Amino acid sequence: MKIEPKHVVSLTYDLYVKKEDGVEGLVESATQEQPLTFLFGAGQMIPKFEENLSTLSTGDTYDFHIAAADGYGEFDEEAVANLPKDMFNGTEIPEIGEVLPLQDNNGNRFQGQVVSVTEDSVIVDLNHPMAGQDLHFKGEILNVRPATPEELAHGHAHGPDGHHHH
């Protein structure tokens, strides 16, 4: 079956990014046992990723690159937050390299990595870990099926090959 909006797609992927020495390294995978399953066209994935898959059908393999700007964005030197230490009142001050779950004033959740700790604040890099990276995806389309009315209502895939509610 061909991939179309409002279809549930299951696929395998290997994501490669260039390391500092310029050689590509594998950073993330989805296997046949644990595929990535998502509702196509629901805005859960990088738009460019979906665009590259939009002509494929079950059983097709793919191999494409996405420039950083179309992936997780360019690295933004300004995307750094100073969190006052009293925010961590009663909890341990995080260590450098630790990733913190944060929330902005609009309730959007994101993660920041601690880059330094000063006397009165914790400095966190808010860039996505893969910001500034060109992404290289390779994989295979395992399954394409129309989404159920419930999946469409919830905006994501359910069932044995989808998202579970606990």
Rank of each mutant, 00 (worst) to 15 (best):
L36K: 02
L56D: 09
A79N: 12
P101A: 13
G107F: 10
H65A: 05
V27Q: 05
A79H: 10
A69V: 14
N82E: 14
H136F: 05
E140M: 13
I123Q: 13
Q44D: 12
I66T: 01
D104Y: 11
E119D: 15
A42T: 04
S54L: 10
Q32M: 08
L56T: 11
S54D: 03
T91M: 12
L39E: 10
H65Q: 12
S57K: 15
F40H: 07
M130K: 12
P101D: 14
K48F: 04
E74M: 07
G41E: 02
E51P: 02
E24P: 15
K48Q: 15
T91G: 04
G112F: 08
D60N: 15
E77T: 06
G139F: 06
K85H: 04
Q133P: 00
D120E: 14
N105H: 05
I66W: 00
T55N: 12
A79G: 02
Q32K: 15
A68L: 02
G90I: 10
F110E: 05
I46P: 00
E50T: 02
S121A: 09
I123P: 06
S57D: 09
D60S: 15
N127Q: 06
I93H: 04
G43V: 08
K85S: 10
H65K: 15
Q44T: 14
T55L: 08
L126V: 03
S116Y: 01
K48L: 02
V99W: 00
G73W: 09
D63R: 13
F110T: 11
T31V: 07
G43W: 09
G25K: 14
L56A: 12
D104W: 10
D21W: 06
I96M: 05
G43P: 01
V80Q: 01
E98Y: 07
M87A: 08
T31H: 03
E51W: 14
F75S: 03
A79R: 12
L56Q: 12
V114E: 01
N105W: 06
M130H: 12
P35G: 05
D120P: 03
Q32N: 07
A131H: 03
S57G: 14
E140D: 05
V114S: 02
H65E: 13
T58R: 14
F38S: 00
I66V: 14
I96F: 02
T31S: 15
N127Y: 03
V80Y: 04
N108M: 06
T31Q: 06
G112W: 12
D70F: 00
L36A: 10
A79F: 07
S116P: 03
V27N: 01
E50R: 00
G73H: 07
F40N: 01
H136W: 15
A69R: 01
T61Q: 13
E24R: 15
P47V: 05
P129D: 07
V124S: 04
T118R: 11
G41W: 13
Q103C: 08
F110V: 11
G132E: 07
V124G: 08
Q32P: 07
L100Y: 05
F75G: 01
G25F: 13
D76W: 01
P129L: 04
